Computed example of a mutant assay.
Amino acid sequence: MAERKTLFITGASSGIGEATARAAVAAGWNVGLMARSADKLDQLVQELGSASLAVAGDATDLVAQEDAIARVAAHYGGLDAAFANAGMGVETPGTEAGDPEEWRRMIDLNIMALLYTTRAALPELRKTKGQLVLTGSVAGKVHIAGSIYGATKWFVHGYAGNMAQEMREWGGRCTLIAPGMVDTPFFSEPKPEKLQAEDIANAVVFALSQPPRAAIPEIVVMPMG
């Protein structure tokens, strides 16, 4: 039986992160789960068992991410993949009507926290020729009137391509996951006719399951409805 690989996930307490934790464990991975909601992480670990480790913390804190990744790598003997998934939108869209403090929180989470995951994980991923997975969005591929959220995802898309080039130099891979609308707590109203978090989790596991010769730079997942 092959040794279990280990995946670190931010935003792991709900939505895409939680679904990916379940899908990865089912596919034979260990998972390190980071989010601010310690109680939700503990419940998920109770469900997933010894293949999961909760490392509660704020993804917008570089030291917290470094500590979380160090704990996960020490616990499972290394790190094979990191999924920078934590993100948020805004309640008040637009530039004139928008809330600059809300912009700052969104940029801290959608951009800075993703950079922190990458920075903290790369030393471990280099040891395993591992993989970085970033949650982008179809909003990072098209122009949406006045969308500052979409602009943060354009950053993620550009950065993912740049990291794929850098990681290739030492045998690592970077995959961007770009979902269309997903029915998750990201939205205040349920959207049951749209994609489910499990659909995106399946795309992450697909990318992680490819042989070392195959790089998957981007996966776009769109709802049929």
Rank of each mutant, 00 (worst) to 15 (best):
E3D: 14
R4P: 11
T10W: 05
I16H: 08
G17P: 03
G17C: 05
A19D: 06
V25Y: 11
V31M: 03
M34P: 01
A35M: 03
S37G: 00
D39F: 01
G49C: 10
G57Q: 00
D58V: 00
T60Y: 00
D61H: 04
A64M: 02
A64P: 09
Q65F: 00
E66H: 14
D67S: 13
I69E: 04
A73P: 08
A73W: 05
H75D: 10
L79M: 01
L79S: 01
N85Y: 03
G87P: 11
P93D: 10
P93F: 08
P93N: 05
G94W: 10
D99T: 06
W103K: 02
I107T: 12
D108T: 05
L109Y: 04
L109T: 15
A113G: 09
L114E: 09
L115H: 13
Y116G: 08
T117K: 01
T117I: 06
L122I: 14
L134M: 15
A139D: 14
K141H: 14
K141T: 07
A145W: 08
S147D: 09
I148D: 01
Y149L: 05
K153S: 09
W154V: 12
A164S: 14
E166T: 12
E166C: 01
M167F: 12
M167K: 05
R173I: 02
L176M: 12
A178S: 15
G180N: 08
G180V: 02
F186S: 07
F187W: 15
F187I: 06
Q196V: 13
E198R: 14
D199R: 06
I200R: 10
A201H: 07
V204R: 05
A207F: 04
S209Q: 12
P211T: 05
E218K: 11
I219R: 01
V220K: 09
V221D: 04
V221T: 11
M222K: 15
M222Q: 15
